[in-house]
Write a protein that binds this DNA or RNA. Structure first.
Length: 277
DNA sequence: CTTACATCCTGATTGC
DNA sequence: TGCAATCAGGATGTAA
């Protein structure tokens, strides 16, 4: 499930392999993603050069010559792979390859998404400023905007579980189910705790560990839990370093207590009953 | 305003 | 072994 570290890893790899290349052709094989790919997307992308590759929250942003921006979201099962040639292991097209960007060096960026929860949308410069996908996003967790004063303020009076607060893209942008659980483990706070009941010291710990966890995950090029692959088709290595996510019944790496799985806001949430309070 | 929940989808896993 | 039921979950839209 691609979250900020996976998308940021993808961005960094693509920045080396695809940046400054011209998109010579766009092929839409399956437009039925979560929202249909616009019929004019190919015309608005083809022939333009990739000027820079950015990221906002879990969105990848390809800035194109002429002012258009291609916004990409991987949903839950999406990947964007850079393929230079067809091989036996990676044939030219595979199942669930929905859209491909052909670059001027004959390589291709292929969007594959089995569950089709992803997004591919193009904006002009004005449209990007008012893009509904980006308009309501909260601060980036690796920028200064996500600090203890801010988190304390948004938690004040809230009855929602702190884990739901961390996953609310309007409060802080880019954290999903895996990293919310990992951050709360490191902060020693149970995912079920009501946000408004947290002490300032606990808020401080959440803020302190958020960039530590996310940067460590980026350094491992993300977490591959089931299917995530980076643009070279490689899995992320952070799964080996997960402390709680997906480890129900396994011993806590700190104290040995079995990790528990509780449902918070319709999502599986993992925690150590001894290390987290 | 906040919170709850159904919806989209298919591969992997579980149950019988 | 085989098939059906269940689960997983990011963002969105609607309802309470």
């Amino acid at each position: 499930m691609p979250e900020l570290p996976e998308v940021e890893s993808l961005r960094r790899i693509l920045a080396r392999s695809a940046d400054r290349r011209t998109i010579t052709e766009v092929r839409v094989v399956e437009p039925r993603l979560r929202r249909p790919v616009a019929h004019d997307l190919a015309d608005r992308v083809a022939g333009r050069r990739i000027e820079s590759i950015g990221r906002r929250a879990k969105y990848l942003m390809l800035a194109l010559s002429g002012g258009n921006t291609l916004l990409v979201h991987l949903g839950m099962s999406g990947s964007l792979t850079h393929r230079r040639v067809a091989t036996d292991d990676a044939p030219f097209m595979t199942r669930h390859d929905h859209l491909e960007l052909i670059l001027d060096d004959q390589s291709r960026l292929v969007f594959n998404d089995p569950r089709r929860f992803g997004l591919m949308k193009v904006f002009d410069a004005d449209g990007l400023k008012t893009a509904p996908e980006l308009a309501g996003l909260g601060p980036e967790p690796l920028d200064g905007g996500f600090n203890a004063d801010y988190l304390a303020q948004v938690c004040r009076g809230r009855k929602a579980a702190i884990k739901n607060v961390l996953m609310d893209q309007g409060i802080v942008a880019g954290i999903g189910n895996i990293y919310a659980s990992e951050i709360l483990f490191r902060a020693g706070v149970r995912p079920t705790r009501r946000a408004g009941r947290l002490k300032r010291a606990e808020i401080d710990l959440i803020i302190r560990f958020t960039p530590i966890i996310l940067n460590a995950a980026i350094a491992s090029r993300g977490t591959t839990f089931r299917s995530y692959r980076d643009s070279r088709g490689q899995p992320g290595r952070f799964k080996e370093r997960l402390m709680v996510y997906g480890r129900e019944g396994e011993p806590c790496r700190t104290c040995g207590e079995p990790i528990r799985n509780v449902v918070v806001g319709q999502r599986a949430s993992f925690y150590c009953p001894r290390c987290q309070h």
